[in-house]
Simulated scan of single mutants.
Amino acid sequence: VADVDRAKLEAEADRLRSALLTSISHDLKTPLAAIMGAAGTLREFAPALPEADRADLLSTVLDESERLNRFIANLLDMTKIESGAMEPNYGFHYVGDIVGTALHRARKIIGEHKTEMDIPTDLPMLRVDPVLFEQALFNLLDNAAKYAPPASTIRLQGWADNGSVIVQVMDEGPGIPPADLERIFDTFHRVRKGDQVRAGTGLGLSICRGFIEAMGGTISAANRTDRSGAVFTIRMPVPANQHVNDPDMDDLP
Results as ranks from 00 to 15, higher is better:
Val128Ala: 09
Phe45Met: 12
Ala2Gly: 13
Pro150Thr: 01
Pro88Tyr: 15
Val165Tyr: 15
Pro47Gln: 15
Pro174Tyr: 15
Leu203Phe: 02
Met215Gly: 10
Ser59Lys: 05
Asp77Asn: 10
Ile207Ala: 04
Val169Lys: 05
Leu16Met: 10
Ser65Tyr: 05
Gly175Lys: 10
Val61Asp: 11
Gln242Trp: 03
Gln168Leu: 00
Asn245Phe: 08
Asp5Tyr: 12
Gly173Thr: 00
Arg209Trp: 06
Ile184Phe: 12
Ser59Arg: 04
Pro150Lys: 06
Ala148Thr: 01
Asp56Gly: 03
Leu16Phe: 05
Tyr94Thr: 01
Ile154His: 15
Glu87Gln: 08
Gly202Ile: 00
Ile109Tyr: 07
Val131Thr: 10
Leu203Glu: 11
Asp27Ala: 15
Tyr147Cys: 05
Ala34Lys: 13
Asp56Thr: 05
Gln135Arg: 14
Asp250Cys: 13
Pro177Gly: 12
Asn139Gln: 12
Leu205Gln: 02
Asp171Phe: 15
Val238Tyr: 03
Asp5Trp: 13
Gln168Ser: 11
Pro31Arg: 09
Asp171Asn: 11
Pro150His: 10
Ala73Tyr: 14
Lys193Asn: 05
Phe211Met: 07
Asp142Phe: 15
Leu28Ile: 00
Gly100Arg: 14
Ile166Glu: 14
Gly194Glu: 04
Gly210Trp: 02
Gly96Ser: 03
Gly210His: 04
Lys193Met: 08
Gln135Pro: 13
Arg105Gln: 09
Leu32Ser: 12
Ser206Gly: 06
Val95Trp: 01
Gly217Val: 00
Ala33Gly: 08
Pro174Arg: 15
Gly194Lys: 03
Thr225Glu: 08
